[in-house]
């Protein structure tokens, strides 16, 4: 009895030190993790918002290009070229809204499907995550990138300087061109801001705390949207 006494006291002393230390450690870990999770969540939400703004802006640019194509101010060949490119971009845009069904696009399906296979997976996952949201982040697939780059190229082809300069002096064309210029400029902004936000999420997700705590969950790795968004030379100041 007398020999057991000090041993029992020893255990108690150890526990007295150990338990608060463990509790403190756990509390600290919880604090760190929740701070990191909040930071990551904020970045995620902003990245989703910026991407939605980018999708909106892509649609607005295509719509402005379409209006110019249908204005009768361009020669017929340029009009057709531009209208087709705008429709291609807008067609991809419609698909953004329907997250439930996968609609194979009329053109480009043969080559696009194979190229974009992996990306489509990402897109679908993305759609599921945001199902129910009024405007889920657009599925900015590889096909979409191609269609938007094609629209930029079509705009440059339809509006070379020798067309753009006289057109700018035509009072009926000026508002259309101003619209288009504004939308082209805003597209570059929206794309820059969105890509920037996606990269920040990716950078944050690589941090040790986020990886160890599995804070990213099953949210897909954000992707930047890589297109040629160079407007026709001389369209912007």
């Amino acid at each position: 009895m007398a020999a057991a006494g000090p041993a029992a006291v020893l255990v108690d002393v150890r526990l007295l030190v150990l338990v608060p230390l463990v509790v403190l450690g756990l509390a600290l870990a919880a604090l760190l993790l929740s701070t990191a999770a909040r930071r990551l969540d904020r970045l995620h939400r902003r990245a989703d918002g910026a991407r939605a703004a980018l999708v909106e802006q892509l649609v607005r640019r295509a719509a402005a290009a379409d209006r110019l194509a249908r204005s009768g101010l361009l020669d017929p060949a340029s009009s057709v070229l531009l209208a087709v490119a705008a429709a291609d971009a807008l067609g991809e845009g419609e698909e953004v809204g329907d997250t439930a069904t996968e609609r194979p696009d009329e053109e480009g399906a043969h080559e696009g499907a194979r190229v974009g296979e992996g990306r489509r997976e990402v897109g679908r996952d993305d759609g599921r995550r945001d199902a129910g949201a009024a405007t889920g982040p657009g599925r900015l697939t590889a096909e979409r990138e191609r269609a938007e780059s094609d629209l930029s190229a079509a705009l440059r082809a339809a509006l070379p300087p020798e067309v753009l300069v006289p057109l700018g002096q035509d009072p009926s064309a000026a508002p259309l061109l101003e619209d288009l210029a504004a939308e082209c400029r805003r597209l570059r902004l929206a794309r820059r801001f969105s890509n920037e936000a996606q990269v920040q999420v990716r950078r944050r997700r690589r941090s040790r705390l986020v990886r160890w705590g599995r804070l990213a969950g099953r949210a897909p790795e954000p992707r930047t949207f890589e297109v040629d968004d160079e407007p026709p030379p001389g369209l912007l100041p």
């Binding site: 939400r45 902003r46 910026a50 939605a52 909106e56 945001d130 009024a134 405007t135 936000a197």
Partner: peptide, 10 residues
């Protein structure tokens, strides 16, 4: 526009 989309989504 981005922050409005963010607000709508949340």
């Amino acid at each position: 526009r981005g922050s409005r989309a963010e607000a709508r989504a949340s």
